[in-house]
Amino acid sequence: MMEKMIIGRYIPVESPLHRMDPRAKLMIVFLFVCIVFLANNAITYGILAVYTFLMVFASKVPFRYIMGGLKIVFWLILFTMILHLFLTKEGDILFQWGWFTVYEGGLRQGIFISMRFFLLILMTSLLTLTTTPIEITDGLEELLGPLKKFKFPVHELALMMSISLRFIPTLMDETDKIMKAQTARGVDFSGGTIKERINSIIPLLIPLFISSFKRAEELAVAMEARGYRGGEGRTKYRLLQWSLLDTGMLILLALVTLLLAVFRM
């Protein structure tokens, strides 16, 4: 029932993006999030789109699969689009239908904003699709490392994150199982009025909470039994390796940034 969601999922295939150092990928995504806002006309959005699709291609994750997984997001994008059509009243009037008027500016804004939204989602999805959660965590831990000096709990956060990520599939399975068990007891998760739907959440959420607490407790015990007592004195097993590919990818993004700067109005 939750099979189609791809946000946060990792697809194990061989690709240049998969081989990259997570630090490089994180930096790229972060930079991308910033430079998306540089785009403000057709050319610059075009450049961004080309870059993004190049990355999708380089990830070797089937495009159709990504699109299927982003279905929920499309509704959000559509919603933003419609919002802009309604609310932005700039430029020429494109057409009028009763009280409903679409301005040229509204249409343009709508398209641009949805595009921005879409590209952002796509790029961040690519990060998780091509990077195992633990790599992301390692990358973050390394990148944030300097903050340790300011008593920022980098290790604890990284560990928390890696454990939560590790348990996402487990909890998904669990959710699925509980949903099925309650369905067998007559709960209808797929239909009914809003009130019925809210009521049907309770038999799902409570068992899920309870089992998560139990898991957390057992996990803490298991960690303690294996000698875990905080970040101090710990060594690291994972080694991050920066390669030429990573430098190349960063340079590519720098070029894109440059292009954006040149072509924006």
Binding site: I163, R166, R215, E218, L219
Partner: peptide, 10 residues
């Protein structure tokens, strides 16, 4: 419980 003692991601 095999799941609740598996700390690492791999």
């Amino acid at each position: 419980n095999p799941d609740n003692q598996f700390v690492g991601s791999t």
